[in-house]
Amino acid sequence: MSFVPGLGIAKGMALTMRRFFAPKATIQYPETAPDIAVRFRGRLQLLYDELGNVKCETCFQCAMACPVECIDMGGFDTIGRFHVHWGAAEQYAERREKSALRKSGRPVPDPAYTHFDAIDTAPIDAILEKYDWDQAQMLAILAAIQDVYGYLPVAALKKVSQVSGAPYALIYGRATYYSHLRFEKPDHTVAVCRCTACLMAGASRIARSLGGALGTEIGQPPAGGVALEQLPAHIPGAASPLVTLDGTPQPRLTATAAAALGRTLAGGPVA
């Protein structure tokens, strides 16, 4: 159809005129109450994305923002392995559970802390003192904690939050953001030295084949309980290329042997 001047205007005017006589969308609130269940308090459910995964990342921002601190969150972190918790333990369900326990005469566990292994927090105090409890130094603090424990225990993050005053959600968010921070103690740590001598001897090739076999990379989170790292310094007297397994220097590896080692550690078939 060719262009007719004014046709669009006519169509628009017709639309508005139809709307003039159409039923109205307004609900006259005080007179007409919407049909809502008596105890409805808004949408108390977590939403799912199109793949069926829960959209909640357990970031605790809602719990932090809640002015009356009524939001109590427990859940798994984004990787889906660790229980995280926000808020006082004594929420309604837990309180009821606890009173039932008391009546039963059995010992009462603290549900907020049973999920973590107890750790020795003395190193954390030292680290925080070194950084003057400064929240702006959080990345360095977390890195230092990971150096001490080999990973970031959730109890340690809680301790940092309590002592330094930084919100737990911020610490947790930062810890999950940087890929070199991890929450899990790896079963094995494979470290590749990348000093000049080792690089000359093919350390890069070895790191690549190890990473391919393990399904991870240097600087990435562990895979299958095995972490791949870079040795901070060459061990004096060790032969290049130097690869350590849990701190023990391995005999000289070729790329093929490194891949075989990686597959062994990852639990796959040994080629």
């Binding site: 508005t16 005129m17 709307r19 003039f20 159409a22 039923p23 109205k24 969308a25 307004t26 006259q28």
Partner: peptide
């Protein structure tokens, strides 16, 4: 009133 009705609203009432 007229614009409200055309916007599917009720307008001042």
């Amino acid at each position: 009133k007229v614009i409200a009705r055309m916007n599917l609203r009720v307008g001042p009432n």
